[in-house]
């Protein structure tokens, strides 16, 4: 009987651990947000995190957006040509890129680049007592390390995604005009006609949420890392994996919220 119940007990334990961690992350996030609005404000640290998020992630996000737009154009052409609906390709590209691909792929790229670096940096600070040292120097580590990063992530990713929206559409336009023989003017006209301001608003809103999640996961796992180099490695992996999963989960939730009829 005991053996039969073992999987149930294991599932229950796993569920309780997951629930505990969700609560712990929620409290950590709430504390981080509260420190954003209370002085002292570490403007230099915010600027440094913002530059790390926005400027240094620009190349990888730009490349991802361009190639994604190009692939969408090619794939949709291959499919739509069978039904003689190739004129809808510009519409498909702009909707796919702006509503989904740009925010999700930019979020995933930034999670891999900045979220991992954040977890590694804070994790190293934790295991080498640098976070404790902050406390002894009259500096609240949540305010000094976490709040500027949360704010930077939330504000920087929308900017990156706006750039990715433009470059993704350009990628589709490039393939459409150079390879598939579309008229440049008509392609762009279709794109602008089909694009709604709500699409851009949702794209930016998703990016803000994803940027916050990337920063939150990087900070949470780094800040709470234990056990030397192995612990820092695990924190880095956990930061990227959890941020990626949360980005996809929240993408569904936000899409349901904004677009479900």
């Amino acid at each position: 009987m005991t053996d039969l119940l073992a999987p149930v007990a294991l599932t229950g334990r796993g569920f309780l651990v997951a629930l505990g961690m969700a609560g712990s992350i929620a409290i950590f996030g709430a504390r981080g947000i509260s420190h954003i609005f209370r002085p002292p404000f570490y403007v230099r640290l915010f600027v440094r995190s913002f530059v790390e998020f926005a400027y240094f992630s620009l190349p990888v996000v730009a490349m991802t957006a361009i190639f994604s737009g190009m692939v969408i154009a090619l794939q949709s052409y291959a499919g739509f040509a069978k039904y003689g609906a190739t004129s809808a390709i510009a519409n498909i590209v702009v909707v796919s890129v702006v509503r989904e691909l740009a925010p999700v792929l930019a979020g995933l790229m930034v999670a891999g680049r900045v979220g991992a670096a954040m977890a590694a940096e804070l994790g190293t600070m934790r295991v080498t007592d640098q976070i404790d040292a902050l406390t002894t120097l009259s500096t609240n580590p949540m305010k000094y390390l976490v709040a500027p990063r949360l704010l930077a992530g939330t504000l920087a990713l929308p900017l990156l995604v706006l750039v990715a929206d433009i470059l993704g559409v350009m990628g589709g336009w490039l393939v459409g005009t150079a390879k598939l023989g579309f008229n440049s003017h008509i392609y762009l006209q279709n794109t602008f006609d089909f694009l709604q301001s709500m699409d851009v608003v949702v794209s930016v809103a998703k990016a803000a949420v994803f940027g916050f999640l990337v920063a939150l996961m990087g900070c949470y796992h780094g800040y709470n890392s234990r056990g030397g180099a192995v612990g820092v490695g695990a924190a880095t992996t956990n930061a990227v994996v959890s941020a990626s999963i949360l980005i996809l989960a929240f993408d569904y939730v936000l899409t349901e919220l904004f677009f479900a009829r």
Binding site: E121, T124, M125, T128, D129, Q130, D132, A133, T135, T136, S138
Partner: peptide, 16 residues
């Protein structure tokens, strides 16, 4: 805490 100074075992200097 502002009246306390601490020397950590490994220095714990901020490497950034």
């Amino acid at each position: 805490r502002g009246e306390i100074g601490m020397l950590f075992q490994n220095g714990a200097l901020f490497d950034s």
